[in-house]
Simulated assay, not measured.
Amino acid sequence: MEASVSLDLPTRILQARQRIEPYVRRTHLEYSPGLSKLADGCEVYIKLESEQITGSFKARGAFNKMLMLAERGPEFKEKGVITASSGNHGLGCLAACKRTGIPLTVYCQKHVDAGKRNSLEEQGATVVLYGEDCVDAELEARRTANLSGVEYISPYNDYDIIAGQGTISVEILEQLPEVDAILVSVGGGGLIGGIARYAKQVKPSIKIIGCSPEKSKVMHASVIAKKLIYEESFDTLSDGTAGSIEENSVTFEICRDYVDEWMLVTEEQIGKAVVFMAQTHHKIVEGSAGVSLGAYMFNAARFKGQKVAIVSCGSNISVRSLQDLLNKYVK
């Protein structure tokens, strides 16, 4: 990772905040009595990125990137851009592309959630299905973009995307300056990378907790191995964080250097967290949000006496999946 870019990232996050402010929501940081009572003296707040436009935090990074491209010149409105996504990043890019007049092509793995694929196509994106893993789609999208001279937008391996996601950290520290720990779901590392880099700059004592599903924990395993590795991912409720990570991703060193602790979450814990949000907060969240929520719910004693913020990163869960979870865990 270029040292100068890493050092400059907090400044770029603040610039991104100004750039995207007219287009995205400053999401609510909601106090959770139910989660707070799980540990003595603990105050827990949920950062509701699940109520962000497009139903996911991904809109932040997408708007930052697309607005920067639009400032560079009109050629992007002619050529368009190419990205790869399991759904949420594509929806965020599509919203930003509509605002800037830039055509969008999205590469998705073959088994991408049908609801997210339909949303992309219905709203005007060109969708190309490729490969069995999200990293297969990413590599093919990048290859196609390079051959055709079109800009490729990585869902996480891009400092402009990371800077956009990092604006969540700015808001949390404004809304709860005394926060002791932030729990974040981890896929490619763009979300936690931006949050961690800014938070550690402003408040070095803060603890950043990376949360991954047991069935897909590539960044977690890579940090342990001290290098990006390939590890097979399996089907998980957290489809938004699932899959491999692009080789040489800039997010690895940020996660290695700025994330303090890692937690793994089972499928049952993810499902119960999704149901908890529906029952207690009357909020719909997707499996990837259930990862960070579940990490706290089943490790609450670890946070005794602390003020905790949990990032609820998305709400794009299918009705069928939600119904299945409610049937399974509501007694």
Results as ranks from 00 to 15, higher is better:
residue 207 K to R: 14
residue 242 A to Y: 10
residue 111 H to C: 10
residue 218 V to Q: 11
residue 255 C to E: 09
residue 26 R to T: 11
residue 119 S to V: 04
residue 76 F to C: 08
residue 298 F to C: 04
residue 33 P to R: 12
residue 74 P to R: 15
residue 101 G to D: 11
residue 322 L to F: 08
residue 80 G to Q: 06
residue 112 V to G: 07
residue 174 E to W: 09
residue 80 G to K: 10
residue 185 S to G: 09
residue 174 E to R: 14
residue 88 N to T: 12
residue 146 N to G: 04
residue 24 V to I: 14
residue 9 L to D: 07
residue 165 Q to P: 01
residue 107 Y to A: 11
residue 252 F to C: 08
residue 293 L to R: 03
residue 153 I to K: 01
residue 94 L to R: 06
residue 246 E to F: 09
residue 326 L to G: 02
residue 309 A to R: 06
residue 223 V to I: 14
residue 309 A to V: 10
residue 213 P to N: 04
residue 52 Q to D: 02
residue 110 K to A: 09
residue 36 S to P: 03
residue 129 L to P: 01
residue 76 F to R: 07
residue 212 S to R: 04
residue 106 V to Q: 01
residue 15 Q to D: 10
residue 166 G to T: 02
residue 128 V to N: 06
residue 196 A to V: 00
residue 30 E to R: 15
residue 74 P to L: 13
residue 234 F to A: 13
residue 157 N to E: 04
residue 92 G to E: 00
residue 290 G to S: 02
residue 297 M to Y: 03
residue 246 E to M: 12
residue 162 I to T: 06
residue 240 G to A: 15
residue 221 A to E: 15
residue 110 K to I: 07
residue 261 E to G: 00
residue 70 A to V: 03
residue 198 Y to R: 06
residue 101 G to Q: 09
residue 119 S to R: 15
residue 145 A to E: 02
residue 230 Y to A: 13
residue 257 D to P: 04
residue 113 D to P: 10
residue 294 G to T: 03
residue 174 E to P: 06
residue 45 Y to I: 08
residue 32 S to R: 08
residue 142 R to T: 03
residue 231 E to G: 11
residue 103 P to A: 06
residue 152 Y to R: 10
residue 278 A to D: 05
residue 251 T to Q: 02
residue 6 S to K: 12
residue 251 T to G: 03
residue 211 C to I: 01
residue 289 A to K: 08
residue 193 G to F: 01
residue 296 Y to F: 10
residue 55 G to Q: 11
residue 173 L to W: 02
residue 64 N to M: 07
residue 297 M to V: 03
residue 99 R to A: 07
residue 67 L to V: 04
residue 240 G to L: 11
residue 114 A to S: 13
residue 155 P to W: 08
residue 47 K to T: 01
residue 182 I to L: 05
residue 135 V to S: 07
residue 177 P to H: 03
residue 46 I to G: 06
residue 136 D to Y: 01
residue 153 I to T: 00
residue 4 S to E: 14
residue 87 G to N: 08
residue 8 D to G: 06
residue 113 D to S: 15
residue 122 E to L: 13
residue 27 T to F: 10
residue 292 S to H: 03
residue 115 G to N: 04
residue 75 E to S: 10
residue 73 G to T: 05
residue 109 Q to K: 13
residue 318 S to C: 01
residue 305 G to D: 03
residue 328 K to D: 01
residue 23 Y to W: 13
residue 144 T to Q: 12
residue 68 M to A: 14
residue 198 Y to I: 05
residue 12 R to H: 04
residue 221 A to L: 13
residue 209 I to T: 07
residue 208 I to T: 00
residue 262 W to A: 07
residue 79 K to R: 13
residue 169 S to W: 02
residue 221 A to N: 13
residue 12 R to E: 11
